[in-house]
């Protein structure tokens, strides 16, 4: 085995098994964007600080820039593309961000949305402090955070109304 070897494996992305043939050093974020064409996952800092690349790994939010694709072979990954319904109906968390003006330029938004999905799966009715803690690892440089915090609570309401889980 050498560093140039390509590794063949399957990732279950947004419910669909996807075959990959990539070098070991391919980050999960790059595998999603470059190899699978899912550019909804954004790459900001590439060292785990900005949170833009957050995806769900087996249902839990993680930094996709801090995982090698080969290392999560066989696991389930959910990206922002996996949230909306087949007819384009927004997921409650996306809906909440839209309603609360929780985004402006949108660069950080997929990461926030995925982090909030993870937060609400864990804490369906977060307190203000829990909501703040849940988004503390994501950076936004245009709206500020207050509308995003409102979106967290609005998303919790929408999910409760639908009796749904994020």
């Amino acid at each position: 085995m050498t560093a140039d070897d390509l590794h063949e494996f399957t990732l279950v992305v947004n419910g669909r098994p996807r075959e990959l043939r990539v070098p070991a050093r391919r980050l999960l974020s790059d595998a999603l964007r470059h190899d699978l064409g899912l550019t909804g996952t954004h790459v900001g800092c590439e060292h785990g600080v900005c949170g833009c690349c957050t995806v769900l790994l087996d249902g839990e939010p993680v930094r996709s820039c801090l995982a090698f694709a080969v290392s999560v072979a066989g696991h389930e990954v959910t990206t922002v593309e996996g949230l909306a319904g087949p007819d384009g109906t927004l997921h409650p968390v996306q809906q909440a961000f839209a309603e609360c003006h929780g985004l402006q330029c949108g660069f950080c938004t997929p990461g926030f949305v995925m982090a909030v999905c993870g937060l609400l799966a864990d804490q369906p009715e977060p307190t203000e402090e829990q909501a703040l803690e849940g988004i503390s690892g994501n950076l936004c440089r245009c709206t500020g955070y207050q509308n995003i915090l409102r979106a967290v609570h609005r998303a919790a309401e929408l999910l409760a109304e639908q009796g749904d889980r994020p």
Binding site: A3, D5, A24, F68
Partner: peptide
């Protein structure tokens, strides 16, 4: 940046 190449082992 991107990580440098390495040989991967998965015991």
């Amino acid at each position: 940046m991107k990580p440098p190449p390495f040989t991967y082992h998965a015991p």
